[in-house]
């Protein structure tokens, strides 16, 4: 078995593990929904005054529980800040969720092995054609996800992240696979390492931002629908942060993506000048990179424009990521241009 075969094997193993992680994350969402139902039933029972509160501590506690206690000295009263952004229902500690994260980490290690062995077998960075770009790009999506959940509990995004990565890897593994071939002269440049890597990093952040914005929209609809948990369709939403908190998180992730995207655009221009004799020529891929940049610039403006915060700006982030995916798939395969390196 040569290195590339090992790489392919690791990649498919990683996908199998990711699929299990996806199931675990999905089960966790289902459990959250069940908890919300139970909580709603209990609330109803309490309101009717019939049942007594059984196991009250174990059942999730209502929002506004998350508080920050400020420093107290001697006799001063404790000041409690009400966290308006907290979820309505605090989910219980979930073993399924932890299994999902553990599986994601195992899958990530296999995925990283696939990526590194592909690079060693090709004796260059493993992102010189569509197959390799998809492999590295999805690796970065998972990496960014694992890094972010250390700081902020976004584990509820696991279903989305695993789903997206599985689809991208599946399509790439089946349709985009190409054998290792040497780089054509136009790609023999240090800018390949920088430009393409930063582009995939930007894509990873945009992907996460997309997920947060999409959930924000669902959450916003739920909040408009009122507080009655019994009428809720996607019950697990009640265990997620408020739409405003989701919006702020999405923004923070998307601006990091925007910085990387800006850098991709500039590094690409510098490289294009060396390889093609001009730094900007409205090549189809350049056009779409520009379009994506402008959409996200619009998104950042929308966040600072009255009447455009909230759902409208979330839609822009979603359109932006749709454009990123369009740029990666449709433009690469069907549009004529100088970025003809899909290897297909």
């Amino acid at each position: 078995m040569n290195l590339d075969e090992l790489s392919v094997l690791s990649l498919w193993s990683a996908m199998a593990i990711y699929a299990l992680a996806f199931i675990a994350f999905a089960l966790d969402l289902a459990k959250r929904s069940a908890e919300v139902s139970a909580y709603a039933d209990e609330q109803a029972a309490q309101a009717s005054g019939a049942g007594s509160r059984v196991d009250g501590e174990q059942v999730a506690s209502a929002g506004s529980a998350a508080t920050t206690t400020t420093s107290r000295v001697s006799s001063t009263a404790t000041i409690e800040r009400v966290d308006e952004d907290a979820s309505d229902v605090t989910p219980k500690r979930s073993a399924t969720l932890r299994i999902g994260v553990a599986l994601t980490i195992i899958g990530f290690l296999l995925h990283a092995t696939a990526d590194v062995t592909r690079g060693i077998s090709a004796q260059r960075v493993p992102w010189a054609n569509m197959y390799e770009f998809a492999m590295t790009g999805t690796l970065l999506i998972v990496m960014v996800f694992l890094m972010v959940i250390v700081k902020v509990d976004l584990r509820f995004l696991g279903t989305f992240v695993m789903g997206l990565v599985l689809i991208l890897l599946g399509v790439s593994g089946v349709n985009f696979y190409v054998a290792v071939v040497p780089l054509p002269p136009a790609l023999q440049s240090a800018w390949l390492i920088i430009h393409v890597f930063v582009a995939s990093l930007g894509t990873a952040f945009f992907g996460l931002g997309f997920a947060l914005s999409a959930i924000q929209l669902f959450q916003h609809r739920r909040e408009l629908a009122g507080k009655d948990l019994k009428l809720l369709k996607l019950k697990f939403l009640a265990t997620l942060p408020s739409s405003e908190r989701l919006e702020n998180l999405a923004y923070r992730v998307n601006i990091v993506g925007f910085i990387f995207w800006t850098f991709t655009l500039m590094a690409g221009s510098i490289w294009a000048e060396r390889a093609w004799g001009r730094y900007w020529g409205w090549d189809t891929k350049e056009v779409w990179t520009f379009i994506i940049w402008v959409i996200y610039a619009g998104y950042i403006h929308a966040r600072a424009t009255r009447g455009w915060r909230g759902s409208r700006s979330a839609w822009l982030a979603i359109i932006g990521f749709a454009a990123v995916m369009f740029n990666f798939t449709i433009v690469n395969i069907f549009f004529k241009g100088l970025h003809a390196y899909s290897g297909l």
């Binding site: 409205w282 189809t284 056009v287 779409w288 520009f290 379009i291 402008v294 959409i295 610039a297 619009g298 403006h301 929308a302 600072a304 424009t305 009255r306 009447g307 455009w308 822009l316 433009v331 549009f335 004529k336």
Partner: peptide
Amino acid sequence: MRTALFLLLMLAIAAVPGSLVP
């Protein structure tokens, strides 16, 4: 801000045909 935002989105849309037609 609203006009700037509108023009930005217009710019993104206006750039699309250049990738569809040579």
